[in-house]
Write a protein that binds this DNA or RNA. Structure first.
Length: 574
RNA sequence: GCGCCGGUAGCUCAGUUGGAUAGAGCGUUGGCCUCCGAAGCCAAAGGUCGUGGGUUCGAUUCCCCCCCGGCGCGCCA
């Protein structure tokens, strides 16, 4: 247990029970980092009323029973009833040394691991990925990495848009043109998609054929399926290249697109019908969930089966949630999907509860996120008004980073500069996306995300590279060194290092990667202050030098590990 | 009309789940390289936490009414 908050929590709970009886065993000791001390315990203020004593008396009684052996240097009763806590320097030293020796940055596996499905990225076949797919891919991947690091079993599900109406018009258009899908790069298919779309909107005759083609696709017509497979294959190559460049861990085996659920749709609908949960309404088969009304004040349905006999996304999503619960045995399902789909996903979740598929302790959560905006405050688009292609965005990021690296580190060989440019450029884009509260929109701004000041990837990468430089120069193995905390900057750094597991737990609970970003920024800032005030290589004694080297090495480990969990590289030079 | 999400320094954003004097970066002003990477550090100035109520020892945080902005609301996904 390297986290002082947990250890102090145990000690204070024990003291509380000794002071006021076992009925208080479950009370949150409310240990918080403090501006006035290392930590503060706020439990006395909340207990005062139920105990019918003044908060200060409660705090004093708890302090009288507190066993701080080996951990607490001193305590202080302050203000209306706050308990300020200072930790023993020896305790901090030993805990940091343990973190350093364990090589896991202090993170321990969760006592009750879960099977967590994460639905993320989900691009559309036969369309290029655009900036809209960035957030789902990057946020979902960070959550997958963090939850895995905490010991959970993560089942990545890339819910590809590889089925449905668009394929009718795409295949029909391909047949019209006599084109061979093999000959087209994905970029051509992108243009192809737009042409098909235009035709679909302009020609009722074409639209009718497209709808018929959808039906033959859904009914398994071999010729139709042949074209479909070519489209899927070409798209998958494109997606994989982007995932590799972007550093997203999705693999082919994580693909669980809409087509996977096609064979289940009829069965899902008839199961819902037999339970009386799906009823005929205006020619469609509908699931009604209480609490949802439309514009006209009438109950809002999920359309499980359309008037024309086809199935829409509601049917697919119902089949998917059932599959994830009953076949994948998920205990937790995370949908990393944009905020506009909040109502739809809530209806899917409630319908699954209503059908008895989803029951506690299993749960389904929408990890909603806002839009990427341009400088005009509107959804990011190119100057021509088109959606921004993700590949172009990433390449521009790498290019901008490349010129900065060429300026700052001209002495490095070109191959190494290229690798650094990728790490910095891609890292900056991902970090900008991850570091703000995901439910909010954010403005895409190159100069801010590539800055070396503030809460950015380059700042963290720089802090890491600078430590690596010190370690290279030290020419000394410090694995077994002991740590001595004497300067205030060393204490702040040690406390920050020990907070890493807490930061990860926080991300897992809030499903907000930006909490990890905030933590890493604090850590890097703490290291910078330490670096300025505490000479490492030129420390006064060999013992202090070794201690500070180990503190530095541990910081580098935690920063690199934290960035890795965000899906961002940490170069040793930059 | 109903619903969801936002509103914190000039700008861009945090705020550890109700705690003490609301914090960063940019920008502005002023300092720090004969010294481990200055892509860095230190400091100053800058706030009616959208408005008004409520809950209580205590509210940026929880509840309610408004104001402003974004998004969603039957066979697209």
């Amino acid at each position: 247990m390297s986290d002082p908050v947990l250890l102090l929590g145990d000690r204070f709970q024990a003291a509380l029970v000794l002071a006021f009886g076992p009925e208080h065993a479950g009370v949150d000791p409310a240990i918080r980092p403090s501006n006035h001390a290392d930590f503060q315990a706020n439990l006395a203020l909340g207990l005062a009323k139920t105990l019918k004593k003044s908060p200060r008396d409660v705090a004093a009684a708890i302090l009288a029973k507190l066993d701080g052996t080996g951990v607490v240097e001193r305590t202080e009763l302050a203000g209306p009833g706050f308990i300020n806590i200072w930790l023993r320097a020896e305790f901090l030293s030993a805990e940091v040394a343990r973190v350093a020796a364990a090589g896991t940055a202090g993170v321990e596996a969760h006592p009750t691991p879960e099977r967590i499905v994460i639905d993320y990225s989900s691009p559309n076949v036969a369309k290029e990925m655009h900036v809209g797919h960035l957030r789902s891919s990057v946020i979902g991947d960070a959550l997958a990495r963090v939850l895995e690091a905490l010991g959970h079993t993560v089942l990545r599900q890339n819910h590809l848009g590889d089925w449905g109406t668009p394929f009718g018009m795409l295949i029909e258009h391909l047949l019209d043109e006599g084109a061979d899908a093999d000959a087209h790069s994905i970029r051509d298919l992108n243009a192809f998609y737009q042409a098909a779309r235009a035709k679909f909107d302009a020609s009722p005759e074409f639209a009718a054929r497209a709808r018929v083609r959808v039906v033959s696709l859904q009914s398994g017509d071999e010729a139709t399926l042949g074209f479909w497979r070519k489209l899927v294959e070409a798209s998958r190559t494109h997606f994989n290249a982007l995932y590799r460049l972007l550093g997203v861990t999705l693999k082919d085996e994580d693909i669980a697109g809409e087509s996977l659920f096609n064979p289940m749709l009829g069965e899902v609908v008839s199961e819902l019908e037999s339970m009386g949960q799906c009823v005929e309404n205006e020619g469609a088969k509908c699931v009604f969930v209480p609490g949802y009304v439309g514009r006209d004040d009438k109950p809002l349905p999920l359309i499980a089966r359309k008037q024309d006999g086809g199935y829409g996304y509601a049917a697919t999503d119902l089949a998917a949630i059932r599959y994830r619960l009953q076949t994948l045995n998920a205990t937790r399902i995370l949908y990393v999907v944009g905020a506009p789909q909040t109502q739809h996903l809530a209806m899917i979740r409630d319908a699954a509860i209503q059908a008895g598929w989803l029951a506690l302790p299993a749960r389904a959560e929408h990890v909603a996120f806002g839009s990427v905006l341009g400088e005009d405050g509107k959804v990011l688009r190119t100057r021509a008004g088109a959606t921004v292609r993700l590949i172009e965005l990433l390449e521009e990021g790498v290019e901008r980073a490349r010129s900065i690296v060429a300026e700052k580190a001209p002495e490095l060989p070109i191959e190494q500069r290229d690798a650094i440019a990728r790490a910095v450029g891609i890292g900056a884009i991902k970090y900008a996306d991850l570091s703000s509260d995901r439910v909010k929109d954010y403005v895409f701004d190159w100069s801010r995300m590539l800055a070396f000041d503030g809460n950015t990837a380059p700042y963290l990468q720089y802090a890491h590279a600078r430590i690596c430089s010190i370690l290279r120069k030290s020419n000394e193995s410090v694995e077994l060194a002991s740590i001595a905390i004497s300067e205030p900057q060393e204490r702040v750094l040690a406390l920050s290092l020990l907070a890493f597991p807490r930061a990860l737990a926080d991300v897992a609970e809030s499903l907000s990667p930006h909490r990890l970003c905030g933590y890493l920024y604090d850590l890097a800032t703490a290291f910078s202050a330490f670096y300025e005030h505490c000479p490492v290589l030129k420390a006064a004694t060999p013992e202090v030098r070794r201690s500070r080297l180990l503190l530095s090495a541990t910081t580098a480990t935690v920063i690199a590990r934290g960035l890795e969990l965000l899906g961002i590289e940490a170069p040793e030079k930059m």
